[in-house]
Amino acid sequence: MATKGWDEFEIGAMLRSFDGKAENIATTMQEDRAYSSSNSFTASVADWRIDKPVFHKDYCIDCQFCWIFCPDMSIISRDKKMIGIDMDHCKGCGICVEVCPTNPKSLLMFDEHIEDEVALAGWPEKDEGEK
């Protein structure tokens, strides 16, 4: 989208979130929405991250704690199952890892440059000290 200089703004500006007629947004999942180019969903903050969360599916119990406490709408849950992380919008805060209750955790933070496969291969074992 073309950007405007500070002295070129309209006095009042209106931005549309969707292209065309938007109906029943409250029950339409993100993949089925017609986002307009002025919706921040089409932008990315991936370059904010220093560490990234990696998701290990095998240990996940679908408690959805990560979904409710994610401040960036980046935990993707469909049909009550956690299916992945939206890496375009994740800022790498690490809340999801902190609230994950499984042992070992099914979400862990890794350096942004480590490949997911490498991270998953080196996943820690169950900590016997805890329950």
Partner: peptide
């Protein structure tokens, strides 16, 4: 929480 997680967010990322 599982019920709740079927909600479609109306607040978007990259804020």
């Amino acid at each position: 929480l599982k019920d709740f997680s079927t909600s479609a967010d109306r607040f978007e990322g990259a804020n």
